[in-house]
Simulated assay, not measured.
Amino acid sequence: MVDVSNHELVPDHSVLDQDAVEDVLEEYNIKKTDLPKIKRTDPALPDDASVGDVIEVTRDSRTADQATVYRLVVS
């Protein structure tokens, strides 16, 4: 089976630790459930991601060089 997470067009996905999650939520003044969702079955997710984790997605951007977005893992 092909590991799509290593494909050049798939942006970096990483699981945030609890301190980083709290920093993000405080910075944007939101709750964890306000974040956009990503399914646990998404092939781009790291193997250690589980439901309830927050994922940091870093991708190339034409206007900002790099764009960072956050997603909440759901079942």
Rank of each mutant, 00 (worst) to 15 (best):
M1G: 13
M1P: 12
V2E: 15
V2R: 15
D3Y: 00
S5E: 01
S5Q: 03
N6P: 00
N6M: 07
N6H: 05
H7D: 14
E8K: 13
L9Y: 15
L9V: 12
L9T: 15
L9Q: 11
L9A: 10
V10C: 02
V10R: 01
V10I: 04
V10A: 02
P11K: 00
P11I: 00
P11L: 00
D12N: 09
D12I: 08
H13V: 06
S14P: 03
S14R: 08
V15F: 02
V15K: 06
V15Q: 02
V15N: 01
L16C: 12
L16D: 09
L16R: 05
Q18M: 00
Q18L: 02
Q18H: 03
D19T: 14
D19F: 09
D19I: 12
A20S: 04
E22G: 03
E22K: 02
E22A: 03
E22M: 05
E22C: 04
D23L: 10
L25M: 11
L25E: 06
E27M: 13
Y28Q: 11
Y28A: 06
Y28C: 05
N29I: 14
N29Y: 12
I30V: 14
I30W: 06
I30A: 09
K31T: 13
K31C: 10
K32L: 13
T33D: 10
T33W: 05
T33A: 13
T33R: 14
D34E: 15
L35H: 12
K37R: 10
K37D: 11
K37N: 09
I38A: 02
I38N: 03
I38R: 02
K39R: 04
K39C: 01
K39A: 03
R40F: 06
R40I: 10
T41C: 08
T41P: 02
D42F: 10
D42H: 12
P43G: 03
A44G: 09
A44T: 05
A44M: 08
A44R: 04
A44P: 01
L45S: 07
L45F: 11
P46N: 11
D47I: 09
D47E: 08
D47F: 12
D47Q: 14
D47P: 09
D48T: 08
D48G: 05
A49I: 01
G52N: 15
V54S: 04
V54W: 10
V54A: 09
E56Q: 06
E56F: 01
V57E: 11
T58E: 11
R59Y: 03
R59V: 04
D60I: 05
D60L: 13
D60R: 09
D60E: 12
S61M: 10
S61C: 13
S61V: 11
R62E: 15
R62N: 13
T63S: 07
T63E: 04
A64V: 15
A64S: 13
D65C: 14
Q66Y: 15
T68P: 13
V69N: 07
V69E: 08
V69F: 00
V69T: 06
L72K: 00
L72V: 00
L72H: 00
V73Y: 02
V73R: 01
V73K: 02
V74G: 14
S75N: 13
